[in-house]
Design a binder for these strands. Structure first.
Lengths: 108, 108
DNA sequence: GCATGAGTTCTACATTGTAGAAACAAGTGG
DNA sequence: CCACTTGTTTCTACAATGTAGAACTCATGC
């Protein structure tokens, strides 16, 4: 997360995947969702590292269900929702008025 | 830029700022645009470092105008446009169906 | 009890993001 | 010509994020 409180690209993806899998958002499942949506396969370590960092910042929380104490179930925290929304807003400002189709790029 | 060819968060911002300032996109001006749009002040080194990395990957090009050979004018390359567009498309897939407003976040 | 599958933790490293100081160029008043 | 100022670029260093895969832990079925 930048000095400005906005999310990094992968952090944002992970957060969204946690939301999308709400209720069964444990590491492996988050990874599967990410792979489904992006079409690439990614190392499980990448997911957990990011999840841990997000938790350290208070953007997600994790708990071990009584029924399956060896698993860690993640859920989005208020701050996580706020952060996603700020990230999207900032980006929209930058994109506003940009039209890729109409662009005459350098011939390289 | 991730292993997948998508842009990092800051890379995307810089690329957009280059587009937005097309014609006078030298480092300082790109920084000013970024500061205008995001409201935070950022170190000039951050901008040049990123611009150099983008150039190394062929997403922008730079040239020194005859009239002002001490400046470096950046412009977006075809690959840069493609990369922006792929980045946006991937993100839209992840966001699709997510409604932050309707979200019942963890009470943390 | 041991193989298996699902999940998690750990370690290590590459790439990005951030910061500020140093160096350079051009113009300006003296 | 020189000191000075302003705008710009380059350099160096470091912190945070992104990436990878092996090791380990549990639960389950056999």
């Amino acid at each position: 997360m930048g000095a400005d409180g906005l999310l990094g690209a992968f952090e944002e993806q992970v957060l969204l995947a946690v939301i999308r899998t709400a209720g069964e958002a444990y590491g492996m499942e988050v990874r599967r969702e990410l792979e489904r949506m992006t079409g690439r396969d990614l190392a499980i370590g990448a997911v957990y590292a990011t999840l841990d960092r997000l938790e350290a910042k208070g953007l997600v929380t994790s708990a071990r269900p009584r029924s399956a104490p060896s698993r860690r179930l993640f859920s989005i925290a208020r701050a996580g929702v706020a952060s996603l929304s700020a990230t999207r807003a900032a980006r929209e400002r930058l994109w506003h008025g940009v039209n890729l189709a109409r662009l005459a790029p350098d011939r390289t």
